[in-house]
Every structure is written in C-alpha cells, then in structure tokens.
C-alpha cells in the first residue's frame, strides 16, 4: 500500500499536469478561432479564381492542351502524394490517422508512390521508412503563409510537367467541426475538369476582352489555381489540428480531474486507517497497563 506521502506527491503531479493540459486547451481554442477566420478570409479568393478559370476554360477550347490539365506525360512514373501533418503532437489521433491513411494509400494506389511531406510529424515518420521523398517542409504552422503553398505548388508542377510524377494529390485533415476532423485526398494534378460554376445573372454581359490574350491568361492562372488548392489544404489542416488538440486536451483535463478525485479518496482512506490503527495501539497499550 502506498504511503500517505507518496499519494500526496502523486496528486500534486497530476494536478500540475491538469493545469498544463487546461492551458493548452485554452491556447488551442484561441488559435482555432484565428485559423477559422483565415479559412473564411481565403474563401473569396478561391471562389473568384475558380469562377474565372471555369469561365476561361469554357471560352478557350485550346485550354485542354495545357500541360497541367493533360494526362500525365509518363503514366508509369510514381504518384506524388503530399501529406499534410502537424508539426506538434498532443492532438489525439490527428497525425496517426493521417499517417495510417497515407500508408494505405501507398498500398492501394497500384503504382509507386512518392511523397511530399509537410509538417514535422509526418516527415519524422516517413523519413525513417525509406520512402521516396520529393519535397519536405517543417515548422510552418506557427506562421502559415501563402508562400508555403507556393513552394508546394512549384514542386508539384515541376515534378508533373517533367514526367517525374504521374499525378499529384494532397492528403490532409479537413476541418469539419470542432469535434470532427476528416482525412481527405484531393487530386491536384492533372487539374480535374473545371466544372462550370452555376452562372450568375451577370454572365450574360461577360463577353470579355482580354489583355493579354485569353490563352495566355489561362495558362498564367492555372499555377495560381494549384497554389490556392494547396493553401486551402494547409489552412484546413491548421484549423483541424487546433480543433483536435482542443478536444484531446479537454479529455486529458477531465481524466486528470477524475484521477485526482480517485487518488484523494484513496489518500483519505489510508489516512483514516492509519489514525484508527494508532488509536487501537494507544487503547490496547493503556489496557495492558
């Protein structure tokens, strides 16, 4: 049976852990709010981009010939999968879900899979497993910028157009709600057919002039489209990470509370037992006289 002092020590340890997890939860909650704002802030840009692009695609029939839309130059080349994990742990099954999904993707893809690793956790996992790594980037989620997405897009486009990769997808945690994150795979290259967005009333008048010519604008715009897709994946992943951490830390705080209650009860029992024993000793000592 553990002594009183041991129990007190354990209670103190659990208490300080509880304080830490509680603080982490609060921090995650405020970071989550900021991450959500950024997702909302990025939406108009992506929507407008999508609209202009599908408009252009419909207008310029030559668009299909663009290398980013065309089927891969080398169909046998490995498939490039970007995996967006977190830089830090302590966020429940956030990273392990992703890594499991990435590993099973590699098995079911039916062809070789190369990886682009974003985030420290995924990098650390796959680097040790001798995976073909084409891109890596860590320590970005503290200060997430559009230029991170640009770097990813640059590699993706370069690999695809040079024939080193037969396709590019990005695997990340999508932010569904605070309690729910979902691992999703988005195809990036070749760019999936740009479905026409439901046309607004103004489309009637939209018989544009172009400066420079339409074809050139279109091919200038496509790489930016790839960037916005990566950027969206990064933002979603950041929000999902904070949500996952918030939930995990909330659970941890609750567990710590329960543990403290249990330990306190146990400690009181031990103390009471000791007092009773001492009393018996005193009484029986007195009787012996």
């Amino acid at each position: 049976m553990p002594s009183l002092i041991d129990l007190r020590r354990r209670i103190r340890a659990v208490k300080s852990t509880e304080q830490i997890t509680k603080a982490m939860k609060t921090v995650a909650a405020s970071k989550l709010r900021r991450a959500q704002d950024r997702i909302v802030g990025a939406r108009p840009f992506a929507q407008l981009m999508q609209r202009v692009l599908s408009d252009l695609a419909a207008r310029t029939g030559a668009a299909a010939a663009h290398p980013l839309l065309a089927p891969p130059a080398a169909p046998d080349a490995p498939f490039l999968l970007f995996v967006v994990t977190a830089d830090k742990g302590l966020c429940g099954s956030f990273n392990s879900n992703l890594i499991r999904e990435a590993a099973s993707f590699a098995v079911t893809a039916g062809r070789e899979v190369a990886m682009g690793l974003v985030g420290r956790k995924g990098r650390d996992f796959f680097v040790r497993r001798g995976v073909d790594i084409r891109f890596q980037m860590v320590n970005l989620f503290n200060d997430l910028r559009y230029s991170h997405a640009e770097a990813m897009a640059e590699t993706a486009i370069e690999q695809y157009t040079s024939g080193a990769a037969s396709g590019v997808s990005v695997l990340y945690n999508e932010f569904k709600s605070v309690l729910q994150q979902q691992v999703v795979v988005d195809q990036v290259l070749p760019i999936p057919a740009l479905e026409a967005v439901e046309e607004e009333a103004e489309a009637v008048s939209a018989d544009y002039l172009f400066e420079p010519p339409a074809g050139q604008i279109f091919s200038d715009l496509l790489p930016h489209h790839v960037e916005t897709q990566f950027f969206r994946a990064l933002l979603e992943s950041a929000a999902a990470e904070h949500a996952a951490r918030m939930t995990a830390m909330d659970a941890a705080t609750r567990n710590a509370g329960e543990m403290i209650d249990g330990l306190t009860l146990h400690m009181n029992k031990v103390r009471q037992a000791a007092i009773t024993r001492e009393l018996i000793e005193v009484v029986s000592g007195a009787e012996a006289l």
Partner: peptide, 19 residues
Amino acid sequence: PGAEGYLGVLPGHTPLLVK
C-alpha cells in the same frame, strides 16, 4: 496597373479580363 500599362476604369467599361 495592367500588364500592358495602367488603365482607367469608369462605370460602363466593356467587360475585360486583365493581368
């Protein structure tokens, strides 16, 4: 700042997509 020089836009401008 258009790709081929600054351009002024007034209401009623013809539809234009410019880099």
